[in-house]
């Protein structure tokens, strides 16, 4: 059976200088980029273009496929609907207006600018995230989080969660499939049962999954104990970032800050 795992993991194996870069550097720079995008004022098209070019150059350099990244970056698009109202709630010069019945819908230039800015910021942020996840093993990212002083318990939970995600989602999918196979209908007979019954069936599936997960975690724990786990989450000592890596991170962050600053100055 085909695995859904490929869909769960964004990592794309390729040889590139970006793949080889330390995960801490990549994580911090991505964060700087996303923060910079959030700080940009509405309508800072030049700055947005600069950030877009940076991201696209990196995507190109990393050999992960510009088209694939673009396609995957559409995930946040549906949420844009929430921002549609920006079009019609900003004061500004009237561009378009419709009347129907007692109501009037008016689109202003400021509204269009605000809406498009949110859309582009969101789209670029998603691409930055995709880039990070495409060139960084999840395990490396976890290590980076630990080195960046995230509490070890949290990192360990994320690690276990990631490890068992595949197993649990497989289990859930097999259950769904078993249900689907028996979701039959007779010709000319309304099928599907009541809505509360359907919800109850799912609730019990969730309960079943919970018990199986719990029992699995107990087996995992015993396996850990039998290999000497004593409750302390230890990890190997990690090397600190090299001066070059620090410099690169600082430089990148400063550059992003400069772009933001300039866009306020000249915007």
């Amino acid at each position: 059976m085909a695995t859904p795992h490929l869909l769960l993991d964004r990592y794309i194996d390729a040889e590139s200088p970006l793949h080889a870069q330390d995960a801490r550097v990549k994580l911090l720079l991505t964060l700087a980029l996303v923060v910079a995008l959030a700080l940009l004022p509405a309508g800072a098209w030049v700055a947005l273009l600069v950030f877009a070019l940076i991201i696209w150059t990196a995507v190109y350099q990393a050999h992960i496929g510009l088209l694939r990244t673009m396609r995957r970056s559409l995930v946040a698009l549906p949420f844009a609907l929430v921002a549609v109202t920006l079009l019609i709630t900003r004061p500004g010069e009237l561009l378009l207006s419709w009347s129907f019945g007692p109501w009037r819908l008016a689109i202003t230039d400021a509204g269009v600018t605000a809406f498009l800015s949110v859309l582009v910021k969101s789209w670029l942020s998603v691409q930055a995230m995709l880039l990070l996840m495409s060139i960084t093993h999840f395990a490396d990212l976890l290590r980076a989080l630990r080195q960046l002083r995230l509490p070890p318990v949290l990192v360990a939970i994320l690690g276990f969660a990631y490890r068992y995600l595949f197993i649990m989602t497989d289990e859930a999918q097999r259950m769904l499939r078993a249900r689907e196979c028996r979701s039959a209908a007779l010709p000319g007979q309304p099928a599907g049962g009541s809505i509360t019954w359907r919800a109850a069936v799912v609730g019990r599936m969730v309960g079943t999954l919970f018990i199986r997960a719990y029992e699995r975690s107990e087996r995992v724990y015993v396996a850990m104990l039998s290999r000497g786990f004593n409750g302390n989450l230890v990890s190997l000592d990690e090397r600190p970032l090299s001066p070059n890596e620090r410099g690169f991170t600082l430089l990148g962050t400063a550059a992003a800050a400069a772009v933001v600053w300039a866009s306020y100055l000249f915007g």
Binding site: L186, Q189, G192, V201, R204, G207, T208
Partner: peptide, 21 residues
């Protein structure tokens, strides 16, 4: 995988209930 209900009855009844019997 096949048995996702709490009791044997619920599970064997799933198909027939879904068919609207």
């Amino acid at each position: 995988d096949q048995l996702f209900s709490p009791t044997v009855f619920d599970d064997v009844a799933f198909g027939p209930i879904h068919m609207g019997l």
